[in-house]
C-alpha cells in the first residue's frame, strides 16, 4: 500500500506542473495587463511603463514563467499586485472556509446520496425510484445560484430560521483557531454555542453546493447496487437465509460503492469550482470570492495561486479516494 500511495503522489506532480503551465499561459498570453489600472487615474504611458517594469510585466513571457516557477519551488506564491500582500497570507485565512464548505457539501451529498441511491435500486421502478429519478435529474440541472436565492428567501427572509449570509455573525469573535474549520474548532474547544452558530451559517451554502453531487452519487450508487444485486453471491446469501437488510446494507453496498467512491473524488473538484458561485451568493469568505475579485482586477498571481492550491487539494483528495478505493477493492492496488 505504501508503494501505491507513493506512486500516486509522484504521478500527481507532473499533473500539477501541467496545471501551472496551462494557467500561466492562459493568464499571461491572453491580453491581461493590470499596469494601467495600477498606475492610477490619468496615468501617463511613462507611468504605466514604470509599473510594468516594477512588476516584471515587460520581461518575455518565458522569463516571467521561469521566475514564477522558481518562486513556487521555494514555496513563495508572490505578492498580490492589488492587495500588495503575500498571496499565501491572503489565501491562508480563506482556504479553511472553502475546505469546510466543500467537505460539508461532500459529506452531505454522500450521507444522503448513498442511502437514496441504494433505496432507489432496491425499489427500482417503484414510485420512489421514479421520484428519485426526477429529483436527481433536477439536482443536476438546477442552477445553483437560483436554488441558493430560493433557499435564502424561504429559510432566511420568510421563516427567519437561518442567517442569510456570511460564515459567522458580524462582529462576534469566531471560534478559537485550531484548524480554521469553525465546526471542528468549536467542537474541539467545547463551545457548542459557536458550533451551533457556525452550523446555522453553513447549512444553506453546503446544501446548495451539495445538490449536484448528491444527485450524481445517488445515481452512481443506484446503478452499482442494481448491478451487484444480480451477482451470484447475493443469490447465495439469500438462499443461505441472510436477512435482506443485512445483504443490501452490508454486502451489496460494500461491493457497489466503488464507483460512487471514485465519483466522490471527481466531485470534489466540481464542488470546489462550483463553490465560487455559492460563496459569492452566500457571502462566504472563501477562496472562490477571492478568485472572482482577482480575475476582475487581473491579479494574475492571486489567480495562479488559487488555481495551484485548488489543484493540490484536488490531487490530495484523489489520492485519498484511490487509497479508499484500494482498501475497498484490493485488486486496484495491484494494478497500479
Amino acid at each position: 500500500m505504501t508503494r501505491f500511495v507513493l506512486r500516486r503522489l509522484l504521478l500527481a506532480l507532473p499533473a500539477l506542473f501541467g496545471l501551472l503551465v496551462l494557467t500561466f499561459i492562459m493568464l499571461r498570453v491572453l491580453p491581461s495587463d493590470p499596469s494601467a489600472a495600477l498606475a492610477g487615474e490619468n496615468a501617463t504611458p511613462e507611468q504605466i511603463a514604470a509599473v510594468r517594469k516594477a512588476y516584471g510585466f515587460d520581461e518575455p513571457i518565458w522569463k516571467q514563467f521561469v521566475i514564477y516557477v522558481g518562486q513556487v519551488a521555494r514555496a513563495d506564491l508572490g505578492n498580490s499586485i492589488i492587495s500588495n500582500r503575500p498571496v499565501a497570507s491572503d489565501i491562508a485565512w480563506r482556504l479553511p472556509a472553502t475546505i469546510e464548505l466543500t467537505f460539508a457539501a461532500l459529506l452531505f451529498a454522500a450521507l444522503v446520496g448513498i442511502p437514496l441511491g441504494t433505496m432507489a435500486a432496491v425499489w427500482h421502478n417503484s414510485p420512489f425510484d421514479h421520484v428519485m429519478r426526477v429529483v436527481t435529474v433536477g439536482g443536476l440541472a438546477i442552477a445553483s445560484f437560483w436554488f441558493a436565492i430560493i433557499l435564502q428567501i424561504v429559510f432566511s427572509m420568510d421563516l427567519g430560521w437561518l442567517p442569510l449570509r456570511a460564515r459567522y455573525p458580524d462582529g462576534v469573535p469566531p471560534p478559537t483557531e485550531i484548524t480554521g474549520l469553525y465546526l471542528v474548532d468549536s467542537l474541539l474547544t467545547l463551545r457548542f454555542d459557536q458550533f451551533w452558530a457556525s452550523f446555522k451559517h453553513i447549512i444553506m451554502p453546503a446544501f446548495t453546493l451539495s445538490l449536484g453531487g448528491l444527485a450524481s452519487i445517488a445515481r452512481f450508487t443506484r446503478a452499482g447496487v442494481l448491478e451487484t444485486m444480480q451477482k451470484d453471491f447475493v443469490h447465495y446469501a439469500e438462499a443461505a437465509g441472510y436477512a435482506r437488510k443485512r445483504i443490501i446494507w452490508v454486502y451489496v453496498l460494500r461491493n457497489s460503492v466503488v464507483a460512487a467512491t471514485t465519483q466522490i473524488g471527481l466531485l470534489f473538484g466540481t464542488l470546489i469550482s462550483s463553490a465560487v458561485a455559492v460563496e459569492a451568493i452566500f457571502d462566504w469568505p472563501g477562496v472562490g470570492s477571492y478568485a472572482v475579485s482577482a480575475i476582475l482586477t487581473s491579479d494574475y498571481k492571486a489567480v495562479l495561486a488559487v488555481t495551484l492550491i485548488v489543484g493540490v487539494i484536488y490531487a490530495v483528495v484523489n489520492i485519498i479516494v484511490d487509497v479508499v478505493h484500494a482498501m475497498l477493492d484490493p485488486r486496484v492496488a495491484e494494478t497500479l
Partner: peptide, 20 residues
C-alpha cells in the same frame, strides 16, 4: 463601522431588507 464587501447584489439587497 463594519465594512463588508458582499459580492452578490441580490444577497446585499436581501441582507438589507432582513436587517443584517
Amino acid at each position: 463601522v463594519r465594512r463588508r464587501n458582499i459580492l452578490e447584489t441580490t444577497t446585499r439587497i436581501n441582507a438589507l431588507i432582513k436587517g443584517e
